[in-house]
Nucleic acid binder design. Sequence first.
DNA 1: CATGAATGAGCTTTCATTCAT
DNA 2: CATGAATGAAAGCTCATTCAT
Lengths: 212, 212, 212, 212
Amino acid sequence: MDSAPEAGAVVTARGAGREAIAVAAGQIFAERGYHGASIRDIARRAGLSLSALYHWHSSKQDLLAALIEDSTQAYITACHAALAEAGNDPVDRLCALVRATVEYRVRHRVESNITAREWRNLEPAQQERLVGFRRSATRLWSDTVEAGVADSSFRCAHPADARRAIQAACNAISQWYDPSGPIRLPELVERYTEIALRIAHHDPGYRTDVGG
Amino acid sequence: MDSAPEAGAVVTARGAGREAIAVAAGQIFAERGYHGASIRDIARRAGLSLSALYHWHSSKQDLLAALIEDSTQAYITACHAALAEAGNDPVDRLCALVRATVEYRVRHRVESNITAREWRNLEPAQQERLVGFRRSATRLWSDTVEAGVADSSFRCAHPADARRAIQAACNAISQWYDPSGPIRLPELVERYTEIALRIAHHDPGYRTDVGG
Amino acid sequence: MDSAPEAGAVVTARGAGREAIAVAAGQIFAERGYHGASIRDIARRAGLSLSALYHWHSSKQDLLAALIEDSTQAYITACHAALAEAGNDPVDRLCALVRATVEYRVRHRVESNITAREWRNLEPAQQERLVGFRRSATRLWSDTVEAGVADSSFRCAHPADARRAIQAACNAISQWYDPSGPIRLPELVERYTEIALRIAHHDPGYRTDVGG
Amino acid sequence: MDSAPEAGAVVTARGAGREAIAVAAGQIFAERGYHGASIRDIARRAGLSLSALYHWHSSKQDLLAALIEDSTQAYITACHAALAEAGNDPVDRLCALVRATVEYRVRHRVESNITAREWRNLEPAQQERLVGFRRSATRLWSDTVEAGVADSSFRCAHPADARRAIQAACNAISQWYDPSGPIRLPELVERYTEIALRIAHHDPGYRTDVGG
DNA sequence: CATGAATGAGCTTTCATTCAT
DNA sequence: CATGAATGAAAGCTCATTCAT
């Protein structure tokens, strides 16, 4: 810290190996799936030897778990930040969650796909370790929808199904979104906010400044 | 079926191996994914020798392709049947597609999950061979939504996004639905019909005999 | 059995792979020890591919256990046969055990060395499975020595130590005996019989037709 | 070595690493054998880093050779000391060798087992370097037995076999002796002295103060 | 239709070792 | 003296697939 040359440079050098592995592993897991990915290819793409990879991660499983954990935590952090800005109104809060989620699914397509598809390839021990994060993310959604139902902002008859539908629709974005296509992120957020509010059966006459 | 002594029995015997393989492969691909599944385990669960499996399918890839093809076709057939019953009204037709899809995702959870998750593990040649089926299924949805927009049954501003959201919500069912849980299939169809109509922005005051 | 072409030929053909592996594994385990032996080298010396080896043995550990089990059982069988010929006199019985042991250690030097040196490399489960054989072999010796002490054929003060010393001396033969050297097997049996009787403190005046 | 600044403390500190490695390596080589032992585990048990280990020993092989050399020399030194006390009588000298050996095998079980079992894992160069020590130890025994035969203290017909049997019996002690068991070392020395004299065919009427 | 034996390529992982700091 | 990062080689093992029978 004190005698470090230029901060940034040193951080890069120190963690270079680990970071390169994380990037390469993300790409290859996303392309071929956990079992289809070979740890040799990951090391090669990271520009490291196979053994260097094992210096940083004790196993292929550990690598997957690290990726999923990091991504899950980053997503949850983004949700909390969005909710903190949103205040207490359930409609605002749902919009905030949609925005945070759409943004994350677009900006971190690779990690999002891995987290969604490869969860089942975590060994039971890792699933147990990480399942709390998953549940806490789901709870943010269900709490929000239920709060809206309670104060009559939302009039959907089956809040759990509404929540599942909204999440499914938002999460699917990382599977089809093409950043080189015509839709820009803010536009996408607006569209999915509208969809989510409709699924939750929010009466738009009620309040019109949605998504602003 | 019931009493056919020679014919039926022989037919059953003839197809028994192939059918056992399809069931076993479906289970194991669903549990562990294409690359995580071993062809030995599939043969074992089917109660057959490894070579018997190769008598029916020329490769592991062929087995996957057969599974995906069969399931996709069965789904499309179900969609066409439902649409045929539904007549020409876009609202009726959307409801029919939702019903066919929800029913298929519940009744064929395993195949649905495989089709969704393992598509990318098909070799390019197989993808090209089957991609037409996929597209035709998607077109059923988009044609229906667009027809509803055209005749003002649906007022969603972005039909493509609405279609994606509806499909994502319905398809996700096979991932979470628990047949031993409290929700019966007809009830589920009703709930998702409501969700779909809301996503498409159908005005319910317009027409009230939905789901009947 | 009934319709087999020529017995010998078929047996060779059928079990050829398995037998070749057993021979090669014996040699290489003996030369380099369990951990120093590579399963690739074993397969190569057996003239088979690596995978063919795994067709017969599920693991390197399984291969070692099979070797030790076979050898231990062959040794015990030889001891029982010798004892059966020997009758009831403890002196005769001790001589029989020495003869069976010396003969086995000379004729099966390789397996003897493996059994002695690699036992500790068996996993606990395999040790438990095989420890009974080991104990039964030791019991043949201790029963014999104790019977001789009981009827005053042997006057050693500490039968357990006598037994250990006799076994150690006989077992060591497989470590140093050179079949191309000057000592023939019958001569060796005679010498070790004498040594064993002396360790057991047998009074040679008593009975002189030892080893005949 | 050259400018040792504070003597005692420094000497301890200086040799601490090396000594810790020797202890750890002894334990791990004894538990798992040379090839089964990993140099990382040795460093870990010694409480040192991997590179610290390489500071003291240039290779795993060097570590093994150092262990075997030290132990062999210590054993030979003990034998010489015992013989020096014993005088010229072959019976006394054989008893001295037995005592030195039994004591060493009990007090240094770990090193004894390593020396016996891992000799073959020394590279040819190291074997050549150390084989002289081995031979000189064996010569102490054979000279003693032969001297006893020459002066008729021992009447065994085959001195070489007698010597091998005595050594095998004594050396085996380190494999089975349990220091928490009922037999104390002096008692064990007495028992094995008796066994050795009997193997050498010493007439006990001749001289009765054996083991005193 | 079905089997058992065999293969070659590839897998994840561990090893002893080196080197800049 | 000691560290952490990295390496190339080799380990044990599994894979989809083939083929004679």
